Amino acid sequence: MEDIAQNSLNQSTELLKSLAKEHQVPLGIAEDMAVLMQKYPDLSLWGSKTELTGELKKVLESAFRNKLVEME
């Protein structure tokens, strides 16, 4: 069962990286998000959605601060 979950996560990570490249999102941001996907897999009401949201905000704030992405 764990192998299936890990395989699914690996496929999701590769999809995320592919979409990031397609939409010109820096690979570093996609990699940070992939790490967060592994760290916070349970987004149910009783899971870690709030913590993940906070971590995503940090990734995006860092990207803007370091001029990796720009507002349109």
Rank of each mutant, 00 (worst) to 15 (best):
H23A: 12
D32S: 13
N7I: 07
E2S: 10
L9Q: 12
E55F: 03
K58D: 08
M33F: 11
S48K: 10
A5M: 09
E51P: 02
S8G: 05
V59L: 01
T53N: 14
K39V: 09
L16K: 02
K49Y: 12
V59Y: 00
E2N: 12
Q38G: 15
L43C: 11
W46R: 13
E61V: 03
E70C: 03
A63D: 01
N10Y: 05
D3T: 14
I4G: 03
V25C: 11
R65T: 08
H23I: 08
L68F: 03
Q11H: 10
L15V: 15
E22H: 11
L43T: 11
T13F: 04
L68T: 00
L43V: 12
G54P: 02
E55Y: 03
V35W: 07
A5V: 15
E2W: 07
L45K: 14
L15K: 13
L15P: 02
L45T: 15
M71W: 04
K39L: 13
L60P: 00
D32Y: 01
E14W: 06
E51C: 05
E55P: 03
A5Q: 13
N10H: 05
Q24R: 15
M71G: 01
L16N: 03
K58C: 03
Q6I: 11
N66K: 08
E2T: 12
T13P: 01
A20F: 02
K39N: 09
L60T: 08
E2Y: 09
T50N: 08
E70D: 04
P26I: 01
L52K: 04
L15A: 14
K17P: 04
P41H: 07
V25Y: 04
I29M: 12
E55N: 06
S18N: 13
K67P: 03
S18M: 12
H23C: 09
G47K: 01
K58S: 09
V35I: 13
K67R: 08
M1D: 08
A63P: 00
K58E: 10
K67T: 09
G54M: 02
V59C: 02
E72M: 03
S18D: 11
L60Y: 08
N7Q: 12
E14S: 14
A20W: 00
A5S: 09
E14N: 15
N66T: 12
Q38N: 14
E72I: 09
N10M: 07
W46D: 14
Y40S: 05
P26Q: 03
L45C: 08
E31C: 02
A63Q: 00
I29K: 01
Q24T: 15
A30T: 01
P41K: 01
T13L: 13
E2I: 11
L68Q: 14
F64T: 02
K57Q: 09
T53S: 15
F64L: 14
S18E: 13
S8I: 14
A5K: 15
L27Y: 08
N66V: 04
L27F: 06
S8C: 05
L9Y: 05
L27E: 15
K17C: 10
K49S: 15
W46C: 07
K57C: 06
L9F: 07
L68C: 01
